[in-house]
Design a protein around this nucleic acid. Structure first.
Lengths: 234, 234
DNA sequence: AATAATAAAAGTATTTTTTACCATTATTGT
DNA sequence: ACAATAATGGTAAAAAATACTTTTATTATT
């Protein structure tokens, strides 16, 4: 490295970089968020999103991956950058910017033991407690992004089990958008995308007749995405 | 601050934080990007987006505001966070993450002298040169976000002069989406939003008859936004 | 002064999509 | 056997998008 290059960097300030995860889950017809009670200073005892400082040789998204693995035990969690929070005074402790990520997990797949060990709990989004720092805002922003994404991409599937029924999928969308949808029209729309594979098996837990299970056709989804298909669910 | 709190932060790595601006402009029916030729090491002589390190007591968005003012001379540039680039190896010089911002400016309003002084030039997006580091990817991502935003919010207006005609607005949308639109339908749609104020004055530069000038009705736009109105332009 | 040329602006008819609602079906517990 | 229930399939009306045509205001040209 030239002296001039060294100069260029050394003049600039350094600061902490964190990543915080807004972890959504879905069961019993309700959208939930995974938050945890801090056990270390600062803000010990306060509710917080799960997060971590980014290490100097670590990609920001790998830091998020590490955090998610640590708390849920899951390897392939779906997550995506939400927004970066960069106010100079957002963290009183030390200058720290945070890259927020929103993550979707299958609530029945995560490692309960591990989650409890870390003091993490699922809360319905309607009755979240006050969170530390600007984490409340992070949740508000992530919810908006989730709604935006869910409208044009079938990411809702990330929140459901491998096998799911159309009424379950509908109930998820109803939870995300906080409104009821017509069952007939929802079915028609979602099947028109040709990304669901119907299984022979049925779920009889919520009706006499039973609803067919479906799985998501990842292959065809990718194909359609490439061809510029517009999945407008709602 | 408690010792424990100090401990919590001091263990964490610090790194540089930069902000880079993807500055879009529009004139003569074409979408343009403001880029500049670096005059300092590292990468001196290479083409780059405009950007800066974030100072330790500076909000990230204020850093962007500062950069934009410095280069264009403009105070109230519209900009919005695009995405944060956090790969550990994205900058060989020193660990540095960058918060990218996409900005829209009225190409006839900026300070030409100032821009030239900084070695910045407007390029049509179709014939951009290779940019430094991951700046190429930043442009690709920002374009996608611009398209996404322009679809649901009338931000296109940020790129046009205070007074503009409907055909001008159409030509902007055609440049953003790289496709032609039907004049009648476009007019019908855009007027249906009730956010344009028709002026008596006409622009006679492109037709015998002349096209009426309009201005954007910011007041009514805000009102409609609050009421959840969906501005789906395309 | 009449007219040709031009793009803006307004209008209309057709097609497609959305929405609201109703009918049928498979199943089970009584 | 039958009532109950939610899943599924279907249909008609309403709304929106699209393609296309006509009229209009203006200027340059004859």
């Amino acid at each position: 490295m030239t002296n001039k290059t060294v100069d260029f960097y050394s003049k600039a300030a350094k600061m902490h970089v964190a990543t915080d995860c807004i972890v959504f889950g879905f069961n019993t017809g309700e959208l939930k968020l995974l938050i945890f009670k801090r056990r270390v200073e600062p803000h010990s005892g306060d509710w917080s999103l799960i997060g971590s400082f980014v290490q100097v040789d670590e990609d920001v998204d790998n830091a998020a991956r590490r955090v998610l693995k640590e708390i849920t035990g899951l390897d392939n969690v779906f997550f995506e950058q939400s927004k970066t929070y960069g106010k100079a005074d957002r963290d009183e402790g030390s200058r720290c910017i945070s890259v927020a990520q929103f993550a979707l997990i299958r609530i029945e797949e995560y490692d309960k033991k591990l989650t409890e060990k870390h003091g993490a709990y699922w809360y319905r989004i309607q009755d979240l407690p006050k969170l530390v720092l600007d984490h409340d805002q992070m949740v508000i922003d992530a919810l908006e992004i989730l709604r935006q994404r869910a409208k044009h991409q079938p990411i809702g599937f990330e929140l459901l089990p491998e096998k799911f029924t159309i009424p379950q999928l509908q109930s998820l969308y109803e939870a995300i958008y906080q409104r009821s949808l017509d069952p007939g029209n929802f079915r028609k729309k979602v099947l028109s995308f040709k990304v669901l594979i119907k299984l022979d098996e049925k779920d009889r837990s919520s009706s006499k007749r039973g609803a067919h299970y479906y799985t998501f056709d990842h292959e065809n989804y990718k194909k359609l995405l490439r061809s510029g298909y517009n999945f407008e669910v709602i």
